[in-house]
Design a binder for these strands. Structure first.
Length: 514
RNA sequence: GGGAGCGUAGCUCAGUCGGUAGAGCACCGGACUUUUAAUCCGUAGGUCCUGGGUUCGAGCCCCAGCGCUCCCA
């Protein structure tokens, strides 16, 4: 056992000897630190002859002048409201018979002024057993020190939980990325801005539900265990049900069950939930992530553009951000609606200089750039060119619309040009943030498309997976509809300027220890 | 899957040419009732990721492995 832990255990033992529970008890009526800080106007200067004088405004810049201000007043003292706070000890300055202890709760930090004479000899003994990282409660008076620091002048300190492991560096916190993820509790407790980032994630999710609720969408919970990994192109996690002796997969998308609900007459439905893809891990990919899918009967992909804008607009407002957000160190994203719109084929033409309707020309271009084209369907080549050359150039936010029909087996074809499907993806700084269709509701065409594997596309990359029950559902009449998917993790990344998905997923998948 | 980088005290990090393992913070002891990452004095703290190899001698060089980060597929 390290000496740091030994010294903490010794203090734990000492607390027990003093009759104090090192792991504390219920602590009623405490105020959040932010609420306590809001009580500043109640602090005043009271002269000996009973006059109350308002304090000057004290800020970080002016607090050094406070000592001088006091010196100019007639004799008296600073008085403030009684408060009760609780939090973790994050800084500690021991001046002998006087200690300054900074505590933090999830609303803020505040300094405690803890003097031997003020808390009394018994409590002082207890205070000698405190370490950085311990959770304590305090009763005291809120006022300023002579140096103008807002402080709780403690009359009593309560031990609420002894911390046995030593905390990370008091200033830099935990910097090792692996440790921050493995021991997220330490990252949250000691690293600045981490709790706020995850609270913002929560606010964003909450706002999405609110936006959808105001438009009469109903949230449902579909199955996460599927017999067919449909609705997207990805490798699933395989599992097995013992009693039914049945192979199952974790869902890779929400789509096909939500559409069954459209058939059933649930005209506006959504699910906001976890999906699982058994694929690589990267700064933008975690094997489990959160997806929103929304379906609106009698809409189309254009209705989904409007909905996407209002969802993102609401999310930005929910975290109090401006529509123009920083991205990285020197870039910006302007989410002011309406977002830019461009067609897939126009973008492809702009970037490659090739006529996107000329398959031979596209293949030649692909060949000249080292892409393998042999044995590949022209739309597969087109799609590879788009991914390779266009996506990274999209700063956005931009709705890229009208995708090659053959790579969109779940999407309705455009009436004027059946070569394209009524699909858009929303791109921001090269990242695919949303994906939406006018939903294909023709059961016969759907069945054909499920059977059609495009030449040159691996089964894993294809969305064409036969689901007979889904076809049967379509035969019972699914209304024309718009459908939208939004990657919640990526949305949170973009709105919180987080470079890695691991910064906005509390417990990302890691290799197991040892 | 390929490439690059990283792994040293509880935390944050140095470590030169291969020659006794270093600092700051934290901890322990001492001084201090208005400090702001308090300050000052003193002490203690190591599986240098793991396993091999080269060498008189390896934190450092070589090989293999493990873990993380980034880039690419």
């Amino acid at each position: 056992m390290g000496s740091l832990v030994a010294s903490r255990r010794k203090k734990q033992q000492r607390l027990i000897e003093l009759g104090v529970d090192p792991f504390g008890q219920r602590f009623d009526d405490r105020q959040w630190i932010a609420s306590i800080r809001a009580l500043v106007p109640q602090i005043a200067y009271r002269t000996q002859d009973g006059q109350t004088i308002q304090l000057p405004l004290i800020t970080e810049a002016t607090k050094g002048d406070f000592r001088g201000w006091i010196a100019q007043q007639v004799a008296g003292e600073v008085v403030g409201p009684q408060v009760r706070a609780a939090g973790r000890i994050v800084l500690h300055r021991d001046k002998g018979k006087l200690q300054f202890i900074d505590i933090r709760d999830w609303t803020g930090e505040i300094q405690l002024f803890v003097g031997q004479n003020q808390v009394g000899p018994e409590n002082w003994e207890v205070i000698q057993c405190l370490d950085l990282g311990d959770l304590i409660g305090v009763d005291g008076e809120l006022r300023y020190t002579k140096t103008g620091e807002l402080s709780v002048f403690a009359t009593h300190i309560h031990v609420l939980t002894k911390t046995l492991d030593p905390p990370p560096d008091k200033h830099k916190g935990l910097t090792d990325q692996e440790m921050r993820q493995r021991r997220r509790y330490i990252d949250l407790a000691y690293n600045e801005g981490v709790i706020e980032r995850f609270r913002n994630r929560s606010k964003i999710v909450e706002s999405i539900r609110a936006t959808l609720a105001t438009q009469e969408f109903v949230e449902i919970e579909g199955p996460t265990l599927h017999t067919i990994a449909g609705g997207a192109a990805a490798r699933p996690f395989a599992t097995h049900h013992n009693t039914l002796d049945m192979p199952l997969v974790m869902r890779i998308a929400l789509e096909l069950h939500l559409k069954r609900l459209l058939v059933g007459g649930m005209e506006r439905v959504f699910e906001l939930g976890r999906v699982y893809r058994n694929e690589g891990i990267s700064p933008r990919h975690n094997p489990e992530f959160t997806m929103l899918e929304v379906y609106q009967a009698y809409g189309d992909y254009r209705s989904m553009m409007d909905l996407t804008e209002s969802i993102i607009d609401g999310a930005i407002r929910s975290i109090g951000s401006a529509h123009r957000l920083p991205w990285g160190d020197d870039k910006f994203i302007d989410f002011t609606p309406p977002f830019q719109r461009a067609t897939y084929h126009d973008l492809l033409r702009q970037v490659t200089g090739v006529d996107p309707w000329n398959a031979t020309a596209l293949a030649n271009f692909a060949n000249s750039r080292g892409l393998v084209t042999q044995g590949k369907h022209p739309d597969v080549i087109k799609s590879e060119l788009f991914e390779e050359f266009v996506e990274d150039t999209l700063v956005g936010p931009v709705f890229v619309q009208d995708y090659p029909a053959s790579i969109c087996p779940l999407t309705k074809r455009n009436r004027e040009n059946p070569e394209v499907a009524e699909r858009f993806e929303l791109f921001v700084h090269g990242m695919e943030l949303a994906n939406a269709y006018t939903e294909l509701n023709d059961p016969d065409l759907q069945e054909t498309l499920f059977r059609t594997q495009l030449a040159g596309m691996s089964a894993e990359d294809s969305m064409a997976r036969m689901d007979h029950d889904f076809i049967r559902a379509l035969r019972n009449g699914m209304p024309p509809a718009g459908g939208l998917g939004i990657g919640i993790d990526r949305l949170v990344m973009l709105l919180t300027n987080s470079a890695s998905i691991r910064d906005i997923i509390l417990f990302p998948l890691l290799r197991s220890e040892q």
